[in-house]
């Protein structure tokens, strides 16, 4: 794959920034490339996706381009005490892509956004703010609850816990509202950690029956999460997400072994949506 590190001055951040762009070899002549804006987690940068997962390999297999910004520890937010990382994402990265990468598609049906941990928050927020820009969005162990943040970090980012729940950052409520009306939403793919509190707090579970019947597409999957190896979760989530958005090309995600399932179960769980599994068994690594 062509692997580009693009340097430019970000007006929002007032500094030089790296933007990594990966272009698939299998579509070297394509000038309308589908592309995924892929956001890293806390403490990382765009290079970590490429180094710690098979992101580049998966993207080549699916014929999709990747765009990986560097968001520091900014929670992809215009920080209360810090720099404007959301403006950077939604304006500067967008402008850089439009100005310098003509082969990346301008068609919203060929645009995707996804991220890991704080990148999941950023991806969902971006998708909710600009639902017409993307066909699908993915959140992998998305840091959707600002209240679970380290207190000092929360103060720097949002000002306080209370302010973290202000309207534009309360993705739960925004999603719930959007799902009950006819708002156009990108298809949403949420991968959650086995241990995630989201699983045990039903009233915060936005992937509810309401969602499924409202005509919107939301798929939720749960994977084992080993805190000593977080990028393994990110890798599996990315493979699962890419299989969902590009189903016609090479399958990347391996469904769970049948040996763990009861003999009398006839459910096709290759979709790994929890709602389909009658035994309530989570998807295994």
């Amino acid at each position: 794959m062509a692997n580009i590190i693009f340097h430019s001055l970000s007006p929002a951040l007032h500094t030089q920034r790296r933007l990594r762009v990966i272009l698939p070899d299998s579509r070297r002549n394509d000038t309308n490339l589908p592309w995924l804006l892929l956001l890293h987690g806390a403490g990382a940068d765009g290079s970590r996706w490429l180094r710690m997962t098979r992101a580049e390999y998966y993207a080549e297999a699916k014929g999709i381009a990747l765009v990986l910004p560097d968001g520091d520890n900014g929670y992809y937010t215009d920080m209360r005490h810090g720099y404007k990382y959301y403006t950077y994402l939604s304006e500067d990265v967008e402008a850089d892509v439009l100005r310098n990468f003509p082969s990346l598609s301008r068609d919203p049906q060929r645009r995707y956004v996804a991220g890991f941990e704080i990148g999941g928050f950023g991806a969902l927020k971006y998708a909710l703010d600009f639902p017409d820009h993307f066909r699908a969005a993915g959140s992998f162990a998305g840091g959707l609850d600002p209240q679970s943040l380290d207190p000092d970090y929360c103060v720097l980012t949002f000002g306080s816990y209370k302010q973290a729940w202000q309207a534009e950052n309360d993705l739960f409520n925004r999603l719930r509202t959007a799902l009950t009306d006819d708002t156009r939403l990108p298809d949403l793919y949420i991968s959650r950690r086995e241990q995630d509190y989201l699983y045990t707090v039903p009233d915060r579970d936005f992937a509810s029956d309401n969602a499924m019947t409202s005509g919107h597409t939301i798929k939720v999957s749960r994977f084992d999460f080993n805190s000593a190896d977080p990028w393994s979760f990110a890798d599996r989530s990315l493979a699962w997400f890419l299989d969902r958005i590009c189903p016609d090309r090479a399958q990347l995600f391996t469904p769970p072994a049948a040996a763990d399932c009861p003999d009398d179960c006839h459910t096709d769980c290759s979709d790994d949506s929890l709602a389909d599994c009658p035994t309530g068994k989570p998807t295994k690594e």
Binding site: H7, L9, H14, T15, Q16, R17, R18
Partner: peptide, 11 residues
């Protein structure tokens, strides 16, 4: 300097 990064001197 301000607005630069690690690559600027070399570039």
């Amino acid at each position: 300097g301000a607005s630069d990064n690690d690559t600027i001197w070399a570039r």
